[in-house]
Design a protein around this nucleic acid. Structure first.
Lengths: 245, 245
DNA sequence: TCTGGTCTGCGTACAGTGTGCGCATCGAAG
DNA sequence: CTTCGATGCGCACACTGTACGCAGACCAGA
């Protein structure tokens, strides 16, 4: 009974009191919905996206979205495939396969960090997406590794990108935590450091490892870049051993 | 008004009609709550766990749980740390560091596949957990890699376990999808195969890769084991190059 | 010009969710 | 016996995804 929070609902419907349909707004479309959803996900994180809020941002009711998108999960799949287009994979005839793979891996990581919800959705739904952009991403990778001469390109791809996904997931989670605290990464690290030191006090090796890390904590982003590059080089070295000479 | 779905709510409260408190049930406790939560997560997946259902399984109301656990997120952290105890890391004085690391990696993967929600929560909250079991897991890893002679053990650990986490995340997501379909892995693969073939028809390299995979699709679990082992060997080979001789 | 039919948006409603609050009950301590 | 802190619980609130059916917009054909 007290639930009518909306504007005054005319008791007698009248044509004259009826508002004209907005003609200026370009109308709802799947593309616009996905685009706006990505914007909200980037800005406020994955749990801030609700169909009602998304509808409000498009001057629409929540349930109107369902004319263009079957379900929220489907919307997330569309969003994932949309950002998959941002990942750049060099062409198969690149002269230096290591440089090319490094480029592709870095591009994946950059995309995952620009859209920190990406890895979450991937972890939830797996890579059974089959969206067009994800398909061409995979196809290009396969072309690249085949041209590089790997006898089992899919195994090599899985090795490299499992590493890339694992590292990106961890980094994305970290960045999300930092962002939620509303601080820069350095500030957050500085504030976290005493606690971390205290907690790791009882553990010899952790304390040692943490001391060396803390020394370089002035530029955490740089540290992450280096860490990623180091691990990637490790994987690529291991793969190089499997290239037929 | 029509909301009283519960048992008959006596209009006149009477001492005689009041039920005695159950003395046989061992009462709520943080340990019991976490244990039951893990059981529900394992059985029905992450989105099937709600505080109300969890309470019901413990013969308790939903809000009773909040006497022992501050929030649902905190409960998930406790669950994660609980299963972290299942990961086995060989002692630092193991004679063969590769075998020891392979054992630790395999144990992590097995745990992640036994509890497919683990990687999801890790991806959401990052490794800033600092729970006791997770700490000793990290400590033992650090000890192992230090004893193996790595000059920068934490970088080596990050390289290996980014790979392990990435692969486990993907596998866990896949297994969750399979489980939700209510089929065995082989059945699911068989049913998926025509679609996959059709979708990858327009992509040369994907089609090629898929053909070789499909040939071995009789035993998908074995295939996953091999894939994991292959990538792990790649990473360990790369790391071995960095060991001082 | 009128008539249908299809497409799109929306208001309402339902069955859930996490959790804050205050009361009822308990075992133990004084 | 009284008092007190710990524990469980019913209720309520704000919120979620989405099924359903109605209303207006547009367009094809008569």
């Amino acid at each position: 009974m007290s639930r009518s929070k909306t504007t005054d609902k005319n008791p007698i419907p009248s044509v004259w009191a009826r508002e004209r349909r907005r003609a200026d707004q370009p109308a709802l479309s799947r593309e616009a919905i996905v685009r706006e959803a990505i914007a909200m996900l980037d800005a406020d994180g994955i749990e801030a996206l609700s169909m009602r809020k998304l509808g409000a941002r498009l001057n629409a009711g929540a349930t109107s979205l369902y004319r263009h998108v079957a379900t929220k999960d489907e919307l997330m799949e569309l969003a994932v495939d949309e950002v998959a287009a941002e990942i750049h994979v060099p062409p198969a005839d690149s002269p230096d396969w290591r440089a090319a793979v490094t480029e592709a891996a870095g591009s994946f990581r950059a995309t995952a960090l620009r859209h920190p919800w990406l890895t979450l959705v991937l972890g939830q739904a797996g890579l059974a997406y089959l969206g067009p952009n994800y398909m061409t991403f995979s196809e290009r990778l396969a072309a690249l590794f085949t041209a590089a001469g790997f006898p089992e390109p899919s195994r090599a791809i899985d090795a490299v990108f499992s590493y890339v996904i694992g590292m990106s997931t961890t980094e994305a989670a970290w960045l999300t935590t930092v962002a939620r605290a509303g601080e820069t990464e350095s500030e957050f690290v500085a504030r976290l450091l005493p606690t971390a030191r205290q907690v790791s006090a009882g553990y010899d090796h952790l304390a040692a490892a943490e001391a060396t890390t803390a020394a370089q904590a002035a530029d955490p982003a740089r540290l992450r870049d280096d860490k990623f590059a180091y691990g990637l080089d490790v994987v690529l070295d291991g793969l190089a051993l499997r290239l037929p000479k």
